[in-house]
Design a protein around this nucleic acid. Structure first.
Lengths: 132, 132
DNA sequence: CGCGCTGTGAAGAAGGCGTGAACGTGGCTG
DNA sequence: CAGCCACGTTCACGCCTTCTTCACAGCGCG
């Protein structure tokens, strides 16, 4: 599992070093190795899951559109109606939560995309629309 | 669907594209991303709420008529009697206040429209502007 | 006091999203 | 070579968010 990602060219990546170790919260990700550590514990991720995690973790706090994620992970433009990203977001969430039950990393912005951020201190997530 | 961008063909300079990050008070808005930060914290806004916020924040201090807001967000002329703008103003206020309790951003100018400005807690400066 | 304007909760409809499951494929093992 | 298994993709169902509209309440002014 998790052999590698498809584009490992860490040399000519322009602005940012692509294959550098990423630290987001208590997550540690080595894009070049396909290794992700959650609080020191290795996550068992498939290639798609890992690439998706990397694509998200590269821009912590930013909202990334499905199309952008698909393009980053699948390397092709997303066909309309394709739910692959959603499915893998779900799988990723599941494994992240399993490893770190009290943290939330992936936040949904309906109509926009997903945002990767470790545990917003005050979670404003849809407050006033919940209990009615 | 997710496009959400309104027609802002207002590039005064080649250097300043429309989708640049907006800063108004402690608010930070990225029109292209659907991301709005209140004091560094990400707001959970729907597409309509976000577009409305952008439409307002583009002209800080100016009174923007309902018709103009509707046109900017909905992309169509507002039908008479439509209260959609009011409803979403209310929702926006609610979320902004939840994130920044001590600030007021959206000010009502009865008979004219809404004004977006960080802190003038007193609207005394506009008292007798009623007749038409 | 009546009227126009605004704030806001609620209800119903529509659409987006979460997720289990089925299906197909390729690699590994015996 | 046959069987097993992990992975990726697609489908389908149901919940939840979002959008729209309605209704009622509060407020300032003539």
């Amino acid at each position: 599992m998790v052999a590698t990602s498809q584009q490992n060219a860490r040399e000519t990546d322009g602005v940012e070093p692509a294959a550098q170790t990423l630290h987001v919260g208590e997550l540690e990700i080595c894009p070049g190795e396909g290794l992700a550590l959650a609080a020191g514990q290795a996550l068992m991720l498939s290639v798609r899951e890992f690439d998706l995690l990397v694509a998200l973790a590269r821009q912590p706090g930013a909202i990334v559109a499905r199309e952008a994620l698909y393009d980053a992970v699948w390397g092709a433009p997303m066909r309309q109606g394709d739910r692959s990203v959603d499915v893998y977001i779900s799988k990723l969430r599941s494994k992240l939560e399993q490893a770190m039950p009290d943290r939330r990393f992936i936040h949904t912005h309906a109509g926009f995309g997903y945002r990767f951020q470790p545990q917003p201190s005050r979670d404003v997530d849809n407050g006033p629309l919940r209990g009615r």
